[in-house]
Design a protein around this nucleic acid. Structure first.
Lengths: 220, 220
DNA sequence: GTCTATAATACGATAGAC
DNA sequence: GTCTATCGTATTATAGAC
């Protein structure tokens, strides 16, 4: 669009028009959105190309195939979540504090990536989790991390006796479902922005109240 | 396939090979599965035709267009859930009993239609809920019905003070999310059938414990 | 009411120039 | 590294016979 004088005076003084990494990032970003909307089969390479400002040929150049791009898209969040979780140091906090911190982090993450959850739903429903399984290692680590909090809480008497495997899924459901159904649910309350910071904060507080009251050992 | 003698002796003595209603049912059944997998855009008419044992021409004959079929598919569950809900007579039970009955019914429904939830996610993510909105009336009624339980519980002191609009979504998340992520989650526990009656019963009991403890007024 | 055949288009992937 | 052009196939929807 702009006149960029091609002076080759100094190498890398300004970002070159040919930036392999930047191009891949742009593609991944657009692909994540497209795959979250339509899944592997339904996603359109042309749409990804258009939304990332590249040609379809570039996508094949970097990712070989639609499937290769899909795998790359699924890998990013797995690594990212792993990093966030280990930064929380949940194993060094009392169970109640740790669980509270986890809830806040989970909701904050979903609020930041409100469409990312659909990636996993699409994957589950279209492919039976066969591609999800490729990052099973990452997710298992996170899974075990939360499990440890619940086990620890039961052991020290701060939580009631519960089934941690089922409860983890239910806790995630509380935190995440809110965002997954947003586009339908918003029609019930057209004047209320469910994704505003205030609304998300409300959701967070209610989730903490519901979950902590739900898992705490009875005080009687 | 079989030799069916075309004796026109008595009309309608046995079900005719040309059964308009039965054909439509078969189409709707296969369409629900296909749309839940791929959404409106990604669904393939040919796939629906093959899985329902009819030709694509028949689908257009009965439903005019892919969009028309989609609308018909989305309408069925809305009416069905409405009927189930009104059969529970929740307004005649004490809030705690009513909420318990709702949780059991919600989970039983999801267990019976484990893929149906994906219909709404696809609709939310692909179409922004524009087709969901067409049945807004049905869903609003159900929504108000549960809201009334929570309001009643807060009024009579059996529930703590909570935000019913947010809490309803969170309760649904607990009940439903379990099924939505099943195809991914099963890879964490390959030897455990999460959809077996025993497993679903476990989920139900844990959900009741979590939710009722979560919303009940503190006993201190 | 149900079928076969087909028109019109859209898509995934590649070849080859620059 | 990036583009344009294109091949082969799959898909929606319709026409017309039975």
């Amino acid at each position: 669009m702009t006149h960029s004088p091609q002076k080759p005076s100094l190498k890398k003084l300004r970002p070159p028009q040919r930036d392999a990494q930047a191009t891949q990032e742009k593609i991944l970003e657009a692909a994540e959105r497209e795959f979250s909307r339509h899944g592997l089969k339904g996603a359109r390479i042309g749409e990804i190309a258009q939304n990332s400002g590249v040609t379809t040929a570039m996508i094949y150049y970097y990712f070989q195939s639609k499937e290769g791009l899909y795998k790359a898209v699924l890998e990013r969040p797995a690594l990212e979540v792993q990093e966030i979780m280990s930064g929380l140091n949940l194993d060094q906090k009392p169970p109640i504090e740790a669980l509270k911190a986890f809830i806040e982090a989970a909701i904050a993450y979903e609020a930041k990536h409100p469409h990312r959850g659909m990636l996993w739903f699409q994957e589950a429903n279209q492919n039976g989790g066969e591609y999800f399984k490729l990052n099973k290692g990452s997710w298992s680590g996170i899974f075990a991390y939360i499990n440890a909090i619940l086990e620890r809480g039961m052991a020290d008497g701060s939580f009631r006796q519960l089934d941690p495997l089922v409860t983890i899924v239910q806790i995630l459901g509380i935190c995440i479902f809110y965002f997954n159904i947003h586009e339908n649910w918003k029609h019930f309350m057209p004047d209320y922005d469910r994704l505003s910071p205030e609304a998300v904060n409300k959701h967070t507080q209610e989730a903490i109240d519901l979950i902590l009251n739900g898992v705490k050992a009875s005080k009687i």
